[in-house]
């Protein structure tokens, strides 16, 4: 999967509210160009599992839709499984799948099995092949009699598993998952996660996944793409993301006696001061020197250097919407 300078700009109509505004808009359209995604490039090898991170409105869904061919890019190009997505050729459509945690394709009033049969026909699978695949997926997902119960009577977790079955029946080589574990309880999340790992191992499928749950990302994705403000901000190993997000480290001190807050200003940024327990943030480049000075100049009983936890960093990013 390759994205080269992928970009999408929406034309947003500037319309004043009210009937007058509508009429004026009808007569003399005025538009504003709002870039949703700008110059996104990456390459994903077959079989990779990649996490796609970013705060709401960062352009995740737009990128996903461009990669699945649901919207045309306004700049750049994409190649997925050897096809150009927005041409939506049959070969492309049978090679990919899209799972959306907040939307469902199963027929509400009928058992999942009926929806699965419809999909089997649509993708041109014959009955015996369809049955084999259904059995295989059902076993992997631990679904049994749930498949013959109307969808509306299934729990959220069971429903999501059945959605996964419907999305994977045609054995796509590329999986796009948009918040697949949204709203699931912790156990169900873990099971969906385990399934995705198994599926990836068994079929060698490529997986691109967005999720709000850091646990999904840390458990599944050795590599992450971080998008922010429509631009690709980071592409690489999850572990190294913290260096980009947080160019400083956390130093915890245990002192012999409490000291006033000003004492610490020469060393770094004071994060917390609780009697004799102190936490400082110190830029990475100055760490060695600062630690040496701390040990020399202050009555330090204990000193500990650590990375701020990645969840916290990304959580901060999502909450504030700004990159540190």
């Amino acid at each position: 999967m390759v994205a080269r300078g992928l970009g999408k700009t929406y034309r947003v109509a500037d319309k004043q509210p009210g009937l007058g505004g509508t009429l004026r808009h009808f007569l003399r359209r005025r538009h504003r160009d709002v870039p949703a995604v700008t110059d996104v490039s990456f390459t994903i090898q077959p079989g990779e599992i990649v996490g796609f991170l970013g705060p709401n409105g960062a352009g995740k869904t737009t990128t996903l839709k461009m990669l699945t061919g649901l919207i045309h890019p306004t700049a750049g190009s994409a190649t997925v499984a050897g096809y150009t997505p927005h041409r939506r050729q049959r070969g492309f459509l049978t090679a990919i799948t899209l799972v959306m945690g907040q939307k469902q394709q199963l027929i509400w009033d009928l058992p999942p099995l009926d929806s699965l049969r419809v999909n089997a026909a649509v993708y041109g699978l014959d009955d015996s092949e369809a049955k084999r695949r259904i059995d295989e997926l059902a076993e992997m997902l631990e679904l049994g009699e749930e498949l013959t119960r109307p969808v509306r009577k299934l729990s959220l977790g069971q429903r999501m598993k059945a959605e996964l079955m419907a999305a994977l029946l045609h054995r796509p080589a590329v999986l796009f998952l948009d918040e697949p574990s949204l709203g699931l309880d912790v156990n169900a999340q873990a099971r969906v996660r385990q399934f995705l790992v198994d599926y990836n191992r068994r079929t060698g499928a490529t997986v691109l996944l967005t999720s709000h749950y850091m646990a999904d990302i840390t458990a599944l994705c050795p590599r992450v793409l971080l998008i922010h403000g429509g631009r690709l901000f980071y592409d690489g190993r999850l572990a190294r993301l913290s260096e980009r997000l947080a160019p400083w480290r956390q130093v915890r001190l245990e002192l012999a006696q409490p000291l006033p807050a000003e004492t610490f200003h020469p060393y770094g940024e004071l994060e917390s001061l609780d009697g004799a327990a102190v936490r400082l943030l110190i830029p990475r480049q100055q760490l060695t020197e600062a630690v040496a000075r701390l040990l020399n100049e202050l009555p330090v009983l204990d000193l500990e250097v650590s990375d701020p936890p990645i969840e916290e960093l990304i959580g901060r990013l999502f909450r504030k919407g700004v990159v540190a």
Partner: peptide
């Protein structure tokens, strides 16, 4: 309205037929 048209468009079958 619900965005499930996306699923229809991703099927390898004519969307008007579906």
């Amino acid at each position: 309205q619900e965005g499930t048209l996306d699923f229809v468009l991703l099927k390898p079958i004519d969307s008007q037929f579906w």
